[in-house]
Nucleic acid binder design. Structure first.
Length: 474
RNA sequence: GGUCCCGUCGUCCAGAGGCCCAGGACGCCGGCCUUUCAAGCCGGAAACGCCGGUUCGAAUCCGGUCGGGACUGCCA
């Protein structure tokens, strides 16, 4: 049997990392087994669903590199993959269940139901004990599934093993609201049946809903699907992942300069591993090794630090030309304007050095702004630490006069010249070169000094040495 | 409260009875390299929640206990 899995985001917001991780695992499972990965849009919440959110989710999925074989935008043999287009189908399914006696109309009011719940609570009973079929419904009101009370619902979860729910703990849940719209349970189950889904891998938060879906599937006379409930993602404080922990939407990571390959690699490590040793691996390796039965049962904490480290690893693996292309928008953004070819050549001169020390793409911009601005500002901390020391003025003067004599302005000439100066002055590189670095780049943290000077050019290097010297006196 | 799920270093993952006085990665600490910062290299601290049981032998199996989480809507 061909594996058919799906991811079904609700377009009520951008793509959450938890949803992205679930999508990723489904995609890996489909690719590993040569099956199909389907994108369905669960937009039954008409109030909050928007076309903009849907477009953003689709963008994010593509950016992550998850391609789908059927679904929204790419189509497929099952008509629409958007639930809002299938209300008629859900209503028919609900009517079928009414006719077979598996479901019933319930026209009790919200107040009545609320009273029943309170009663159940006060008697420490399951709400399901009270929310049961009544004879009052006569073709009006919401439609509830009549939960069979003779057997518990037991299923084999691919990651959790045998899971069992007593029938009395499952209430007669609503499948069609009184306004004729389907609930999530109905729409999702009907779609999974109609689209021939074989495996449902989703967040553990839906584990308590699973017996309901199984009951519905049976009542509709369809074959049961396999379930895999993935561990939830939490923030570093152990609480459910939310805005407080930084970005929760995938599009934010994209904007902040993360690489899709790095995010893919990191996300796949949340609840799964390639083997006991390997941390960095390719998509192909993941596809070859992935199995839902190897997914961990423990909840995972999403650690932005490790993601950033991994992103740095991927940046270092990039082709120099690919790095330059990826980083250009960030460098231009830091410079505050588009760069000319001559200016870009200055960046290219130090690009390799920048690539080694970049974790997030925007950091590259910060490292090289000195090449493109007028350097109005020095980093205060750097200035304090380096420039407020004895002898700095003398070092700046000496370097300025020696550099002014250079015939050829390139790293190979600048380095021996300045090293010679250090020898003559009898001072170490740390003490002698740091002031020059701060003077030239504005910060004590920068790409290597000689290369930075070479890229900056003679005129501007000397100018900055002079300006720093003046600031010392001032 | 009820139902269900989970419990190995701070964090992610490995471990499917002896290979484990527990392995890899991030982070942290120390050192080397070095013009700074990174990167790289070397080294270090750091965990099987607890109590019983099964067994010659348990991180691995069973029971209990404690702790955490999810769900408990005519949201998804």
């Amino acid at each position: 049997m061909t594996v058919r899995v799906r991811v079904a985001p609700s377009p009520t917001g951008s793509l959450h990392v938890g949803t992205a991780r679930a999508a990723l695992f489904n995609w890996l499972y489909a690719r590993h087994h040569g099956g199909q990965f389907i994108l369905r849009v669960d937009d039954t919440d008409r109030e909050r669903s928007t076309a903009e959110h849907e477009a953003e989710i689709i963008d994010s999925l593509r950016w992550l590199g998850l391609d789908w074989d059927e679904g929204v935008e790419v189509g497929g043999p099952h008509g629409s993959y958007r639930q809002s287009d299938r209300y008629q189908r859900y209503r028919e399914a609900a009517m079928t269940l009414i006719e077979s006696g598996a479901a019933y109309h319930d026209n009790r009011t919200t107040e009545e139901l609320e009273a029943l719940r309170r009663q159940a609570e006060s008697e420490r009973l399951h709400p399901g004990h009270y929310i049961r079929r009544t004879e009052s419904g006569a073709g009006a009101g919401a439609i509830r599934l009549s939960v069979p009370q003779d057997h518990p619902v037991v299923f084999e979860d691919l990651v959790r093993g045998t899971v069992s729910f007593e029938a009395r703990d499952i209430d007669d849940f609503v499948i069609l609201r009184s306004d004729g719209t389907p609930t999530y349970h109905l729409a999702s189950t009907v779609d999974d049946i109609d689209y021939g889904i074989t495996h449902v891998a989703r967040g553990e938060d839906l584990l308590p809903s699973t017996p309901k879906h199984i009951l519905l599937t049976r009542a509709l006379g369809a074959d049961e699907v396999s379930y895999a409930h993935l561990p939830l993602l939490f923030g570093t404080d152990g609480k459910k992942l939310s805005k407080r922990h930084g970005a929760t939407s995938l599009s934010t990571y994209r904007e902040e300069g993360y690489l899709p390959d790095a995010v893919f690699n990191y996300l796949s490590l949340l609840g799964w591993s390639l083997d006991a040793e390997t941390t960095i691996f390719s998509r192909a390796q993941a596809v070859a090794a992935f199995e839902l039965t190897n997914v961990s049962r423990n909840p995972a904490v999403f650690d932005p630090e490790k993601l950033a480290w991994m992103n740095g690893e991927y940046i270092r693996m990039m082709d120099p030309s690919a790095f330059q292309a990826a980083v250009r928008p960030h460098v231009e953004s830091a410079a505050g304007r588009a760069l000319s070819d001559e200016e870009w050549a200055k960046f290219q001169a130090v690009s390799d050095l920048v690539q080694e020390r970049t974790r997030l793409l925007p950091e590259a911009g910060e490292q090289v702004v000195f090449l493109f601005g007028d350097l109005e500002d020095y980093d205060d901390e750097s200035w304090e630490k380096v420039m407020a020391k004895d002898g700095v003025a003398g070092i700046l003067d000496e370097a300025t006069s020696r550099l002014a004599t250079l015939e050829v302005w390139e790293t190979g000439a600048i380095e021996p010249l300045l090293r010679g100066m250090l020898d003559d002055l009898g001072i170490g590189a740390g003490r002698g070169l740091q002031p020059l670095r701060v003077a030239v780049t504005g910060s004590s943290v920068s790409p290597p000094l000689f290369e930075s000077m070479a890229a900056l050019g003679r005129e501007r290097t000397l100018e900055r040495l002079g300006r720093a010297r003046a600031r010392l006196d001032g």
